[in-house]
Design a binder for these strands. Structure first.
Lengths: 313, 313
DNA sequence: CATAGCTATAAGCTGTCTTTATGAGTCATG
DNA sequence: CATGACTCATAAAGACAGCTTATAGCTATG
């Protein structure tokens, strides 16, 4: 099809002129000068090989050829215009968030309702893949990742530190008469003992935990599984506080020590720099950052209260 | 409508890429490099605010937004393409010729049948206006004009000289015992005596025709009316030979003298330079020029024969 | 008549788009 | 595995389309 269409710029100009039947008005609509319009029409007429307008002193008129052409061209541009706005608004209605499983289940799920209340026209599609997602390859608008916070071509906002501290069920702690010092933990089953976080934390605690094998990375993304086991009393897990705020608050888990490790990694909100101004992305970003801020304050509050309680109790 | 459509160049590129699902192939189709395609797509994606293609290692894929967009865009371009070719071929089917009345009736009409036999798909619309036509203002493809042969922006081909010589009916000549020398004409009614052609011709003949008033221009275009009167025997007309070949041949008119005036004006085929390659114009031009050539040869032949007949008779 | 309103044209500049050249990633293959 | 073939991305530089400015010409209108 369409072997060498006439220049589209000129076609666009023709469409406007045909509607207005005036070079001057068309120029105004298109935001260019009358001379430019004249130039384009002349160009198109030479290309088509036929006069498109008859020039009369104070007005112009479509030639037969022009009359045949104009309605179709106008239609075509209308279709293009509609297609773009439909595509845009269609896409505007669905926000696809790729997130780490634990973050989704232990942090986002609880709060997402509020976002949907605030933006009823926006449907959120959660994609909980553990892979690092690549915006160039997947149909994703925004993502939550953990890591160092530097990815090329992306805008990032820190949500909270991926810190880590041991947690366990009150019952398990009671089974050995309470956990009083870090070394006590070694008397209990350690969930995922190969996680580098354990090694780091024990080092921080000044405890020799040489027997623990250690991998180079942490299994952050899968904290949820270890957490479930810990809640069931099967062992001690090393978890990120922010993600288990609820469990700590209602006592399903306890955090025996204030000592918290931090290897500099964090949870980040990430999206392509080029899309920073897309409304739905902006909306989600602003909501999420505000939500993080609120949560941070609440937790600070809660910890202070807990501390006071411990001190006085 | 269409407040700032995304750039059409990019849209065009998008259309091709969406069809091929390949930047490289689209580039080939569009006659540009793969880099240019990549650039345009990136541009469009930023403009739309959404990824349009997912980049996989050896192939690409439309995103949701892209899928919504592609069919409409393809349709739109198909419409544009069809519109252009329809307009062109529609216009190709009708050739509008603007011609001087005398030329149409006394020269073209007789020969036009042959053209229509040769190009059965081309309808010819004759527009016999006496005005000088302006291609910018009238829906005319090609014209026959008389004059000096220089009009700006047009291509011209000389058809034949607008020469002039007296002609009259045999009966009228016989009424004064035959016309033997130029001065004899003055004893007969002169059709349109103010025509400058008369003055010129008598001057050429060495006859003092001082009593004839003279305008500055000739009434070339209206020769037919004078000719009709001359055929009816009402007087002597000064006419262009080429246009009355038939009348001279069948004896309705006679040309008493070989003496022919020529003020340098001619009949011309004229069309806008910019349209010189339009097929229907090319076809008509070539046919007409060939026809003129044939006619010229025939006339030369006929005159020679007449001369021989006179000499020997 | 003179003015206002329209299009045409010429010349020059600007910015878009294109090319060239290169890189980087992935799949097939011996 | 290592290599080659094929993909898209990117950077830099160049070309040229298309825009603007400025001016002229035309004609209906008051």
């Amino acid at each position: 099809m369409s072997f060498q269409l006439p220049p589209l710029t000129a076609t666009r100009v023709f469409e406007a002129v045909a509607r207005h039947l005036s070079f001057t008005k068309a120029a105004r609509e298109l935001g260019m000068t009358q001379a430019a319009v004249s130039y384009q029409i002349k160009l198109l007429e030479e290309r088509v090989g036929a006069q498109l307008f008859l020039r009369h002193p104070r007005h112009i008129e479509l030639t037969e050829v022009g009359q045949r052409l104009a309605p179709a061209i106008t239609d075509a541009f209308a279709i293009i215009g509609e297609a773009y706005s439909a595509a845009r608004s269609g896409a505007e209605g669905v926000l696809c968030v790729s997130t780490i499983l634990t973050f989704a289940s232990n942090w986002l799920a609880r709060r997402l309702g509020a976002f949907q209340m605030a933006y009823p026209s926006l449907a959120v599609r959660l994609d909980t893949s553990s892979r690092l997602i690549d915006f160039a390859r997947e149909d994703v608008d925004i993502a939550i990742r953990s890591g160092g916070g530097k990815w090329p071509g992306t805008e990032t906002h820190k949500l909270f530190s991926a810190d880590f501290t041991p947690m366990l069920s009150p019952a398990l702690a009671a089974s050995i008469g309470g956990v009083h010092k870090p070394a006590d933990l070694l008397r209990l089953p350690i969930m995922d003992p190969g996680d580098i976080w354990w090694k780091e934390w024990f080092k921080l605690a000044g405890v020799d935990a040489g027997e623990l094998a250690s991998r180079t990375a942490s299994s952050m993304g899968a904290q949820m599984y270890e957490a479930s086991a810990a809640i069931a009393g099967h062992g001690v897990a090393i978890l990120t506080r922010e993600l288990f705020q609820a469990e700590l608050a209602d006592g399903r888990l306890i955090q025996p020590f204030d000592l918290v490790g931090d290897d500099g990694h964090s949870y980040w909100l990430v999206y392509p720099t080029s899309r920073r101004n897309v409304p739905k992305i902006k909306a989600f970003r602003e909501w999420l950052l505000a939500e993080v801020e609120t949560s941070r304050k609440e937790n600070t509050e809660a910890r202070r209260a807990a501390e006071v309680a411990r001190a006085s109790g």
